[in-house]
């Protein structure tokens, strides 16, 4: 994935996290992960996880905390 494409994912993830961070309580990481699980296609979530595993440059702390809660793509998908 190119630098520009990674930047885009990082920007979008940070934006999402920023919203949930502003909500009261401490469920922000969970809420961020829930949003990503609900709305991001598996490939995008995978790319984010890979980027996080490779150091996660640019990712906000909250995104980094949400990454472990991302659901991996279901392998029993229809062929």
């Amino acid at each position: 994935m190119s630098g520009a494409e990674v930047d885009r994912l990082v920007t979008m993830a940070n934006q999402i996290a920023r919203f949930f961070e502003s909500q009261p309580g401490d469920g922000a990481a969970r809420a961020t992960a829930d949003h990503l699980n609900s709305f991001w296609a598996p490939t995008m979530r995978e790319q984010l996880s890979e980027h996080a595993a490779a150091g996660g440059s640019g990712l906000s702390a909250l995104v980094a905390a949400a990454v472990p809660l991302l659901r991996p793509a279901r392998t029993d998908a229809p062929g």
């Binding site: 494409e5 885009r8 709305f39 296609a41 598996p42």
Partner: peptide
């Protein structure tokens, strides 16, 4: 009578990003 994907798919901007990436 068919099994459906349970994962969210790509939005239009994501489709275009994925196209540029070759996927």
């Amino acid at each position: 009578d068919v099994e459906l994907d349970a994962e969210p798919g790509l939005r239009i901007p994501n489709m275009l990003d994925a196209a540029v990436q070759g996927a």
